[in-house]
């Protein structure tokens, strides 16, 4: 509620400031996307709309391969993280050690990406040496698996929080009622609870896809034998600086995220109105 005797202009000015900050935070990305459609590139006085730089991207074999790996990685990360997120939310609800468990779940968010990635890198190297020396196995060599582990650690806290918030609105009596009707715990979950937390699980999925799709540092440390789109862009940008190609690549990554977020928000809005 607005304070009824407050100055309405002061209130509007505060809103304006809030919007300004959001726009300012988004401005570099919006700028990049705009430039990526300009035939004359950055710094030119003229602006002519073109998709030519994007077409170039899709003719580049390396970029296509990187995109393929990125989506494959995102898919595997979603498949691993979602069930783990749901399980951890369930575990949180039943455990007596709520605060320590919560701290553990959220801790990976607090540690800078490169510090955690460095520790994991050395850990995997150690494990990999151990397995190859002792059993002749290639476990934990830098690979898709290690990249997935690094990304799951990054995405799990978000999925956990989103699912937990959705579950808080669910009435546990319904699970009990289903059990008493003859459903096993498993059936009760799928028949009764899951349909009601679907929305949260769906947002968590979208969230995970975006997080995985955009992740750079951990992936760069822990991947083996492939490039993802972010690692490709960064090495390209570090080598050549900002070129029309890098603008198009940045634009592509940003717009993918924007489209996913937009779709989720639209669905949420439509559901709210229904």
């Amino acid at each position: 509620m607005m304070r009824e005797y407050g100055n309405p202009w002061a209130h509007r000015a505060k809103w304006l400031y809030l919007i300004f900050v959001v726009v300012a935070l988004m401005s570099p990305v919006l700028h990049t996307v705009t430039i990526s459609f300009n035939e004359h590139g950055f710094g030119a006085a003229d602006y002519d709309f073109t998709l030519v730089y994007y077409f170039d991207l899709f003719r580049n074999e390396e970029i296509l391969a990187a995109l393929g790996w990125t989506f494959w990685l995102a898919f595997v990360v979603v498949v691993v993280t979602l069930p783990m997120g749901i399980l951890s939310a369930k575990f949180y609800q039943t455990t007596r050690w709520k605060v320590p468990f919560l701290l553990l779940m959220l801790a990976p968010l607090f540690i800078p990406a490169d510090i955690m990635a460095a520790a994991l890198l050395v850990y995997f190297k150690t494990l990999s040496r151990f397995f190859s020396d002792t059993f002749g196995l290639e476990w934990f060599d830098l690979s898709m698996t290690t990249a997935v582990i690094g990304q799951v650690l990054w995405c799990l806290p978000y999925v956990f929080v989103v699912v937990l918030v959705t579950m808080a609105r669910y009435h546990a009596e319904q699970t009990e009622a289903a059990r008493i009707c003859g459903a096993t715990a498993w059936r009760a979950f799928w028949d009764v609870e899951f349909p009601q937390i679907k929305a949260g699980v769906f947002s968590a999925t979208a969230f995970t896809v975006i997080l995985s799709f955009n992740e750079y540092t951990r992936t760069n440390f822990l991947k083996g034998g492939f490039e993802t789109f972010p690692t490709y862009i960064v090495s390209y940008m570090l080598n050549t600086g900002m070129t029309p190609e890098t603008y198009a690549m940045s634009g592509l990554v940003s717009m993918t995220s924007i489209v996913i977020v937009g779709a989720v928000l639209l669905l949420a809005l439509r559901k709210e109105q229904a």
Partner: peptide, 10 residues
């Protein structure tokens, strides 16, 4: 079988 106080219908 059981009848609950509330919120128990699906």
């Amino acid at each position: 079988s059981m009848v609950f106080q509330s919120y128990a219908l699906f």
